[in-house]
């Protein structure tokens, strides 16, 4: 595919998302729309964490911290600087507002990526559970610091964030995250990430700068988590540090493990399942979270390698399963 075709394809997709947004958003039940948006945000989180946990094998449970940094940074940008920029830019609002939003998101993502760099550094000395607990700690420290900054709401929460997030943006960034992570993973850099997961000593002996790849995984993963935080803040128009506790990080880790470490399609599916599950369980009311946790435990016990294991979902695979089933049926 040449450059021109690729750019055209991107424009085509953006147009499609815009049309979808304009068609669906006003007609859809707001509750369903919200679930759809949560699905997208959770996919971004799960796929980006999979780069760190699944592909590079660095056990991180601090994703909520990166998300918080991205969310608060972008919200502060659009809230404080946004109106001034809109005033000074003599551009039509339909054009300048998205511009401010994207700038805010990218700024949030960048700051989160910088935090990812800081968190990635201990990964050079620590591994496994020790690293996990440090990333968790970093996440909590980030949260406590935000709690102490009054300009972004502190303990009250950050309200009146402009409502910029729409289905269009969520679709766009979800697809962007998936494409970026997928293309990275299926490249020479992706193999380098995987080699770090498989055997660090051997990877290093084969000329892989394992330090650089570990930190890079954290930086890229954190960047997208930051974007996800920004999308969430500009959707709810409100941010509170309680949404970014280690419980949120756990949720994302669950998506990655449930989907299969190192399976992008698995992460996507698990993100959707774990977003829908609490909603589907709403009728059982008080028992909802009890069921949720029991299901989680049962899923892990019965399918410990995750839904897809390390494999990716593909049609051939599905065909193979069906033909086998068919053969069995015929045989019987």
């Amino acid at each position: 595919m040449n450059q021109l075709k690729k750019i055209l394809l991107i424009i085509l997709f953006l147009g499609l998302f815009l049309v979808l947004d304009l068609l669906i958003s006003p007609r859809m039940n707001p509750y369903y729309l919200q679930i759809l948006i949560y699905c997208g945000i959770n996919i971004i989180l799960a796929v980006s964490l999979n780069l760190i946990n699944g592909f590079t094998g660095q056990f991180s449970i601090g994703h909520a911290g990166f998300m918080a940094i991205g969310g608060y940074t972008s919200a502060a940008f659009t809230f404080y600087l946004g109106p001034k920029i809109l005033e000074t830019l003599f551009l039509p609002l339909w054009f300048s507002k998205p511009l401010v939003f994207v700038a805010g998101l990218l700024l949030g993502g960048t700051l989160a990526a910088f935090a990812g760099l800081l968190v990635g550094i201990p990964s050079l000395r620590l591994r496994g559970d020790y690293l996990a607990i440090v990333t968790l700690g970093f996440g909590e420290i980030i949260r406590v610091f935000i709690l102490n900054i009054d300009a972004i709401g502190g303990a009250r929460g950050f309200s009146d964030v402009p409502k910029y997030t729409s289905l269009f943006w969520v679709l766009g960034f979800t697809v962007l995250t998936i494409v970026v992570v997928r293309n990275l993973v299926y490249s020479t850099h992706g193999r380098a990430f995987l080699s770090v997961r498989e055997d660090e000593v051997a990877a290093e002996a084969m000329g892989i700068n394992t330090t650089w790849y570990k930190v890079t995984a954290f930086v890229i993963g954190a960047f997208f988590a930051g974007i996800a935080g920004g999308l969430l803040g500009h959707y709810l128009q409100y941010l509170h540090t309680n949404s970014f506790t280690f419980i949120k990080s756990f949720e994302v880790v669950m998506m990655v493990v449930l989907g299969g470490m190192g399976s992008i399609t698995g992460s996507i599916l698990a993100a959707v399942i774990l977003t829908l599950l609490p909603e589907v369980l709403r009728p059982v009311k008080d028992y909802r979270m009890v069921f949720y946790s029991i299901l989680l435990v049962i899923l892990m016990i019965t399918r410990p390698q995750g839904i897809f294991g390390v494999r990716e979902f593909n049609w051939d695979w599905l065909k193979k399963i069906f033909s086998r089933k068919k053969a069995q049926a015929e045989g019987a």
Partner: peptide
């Protein structure tokens, strides 16, 4: 070896 990776990927790394 990078055990979970295909044979060729071991060389590609």
């Amino acid at each position: 070896l990078f055990g979970e990776l295909p044979v060729i990927d071991n060389v590609l790394v």
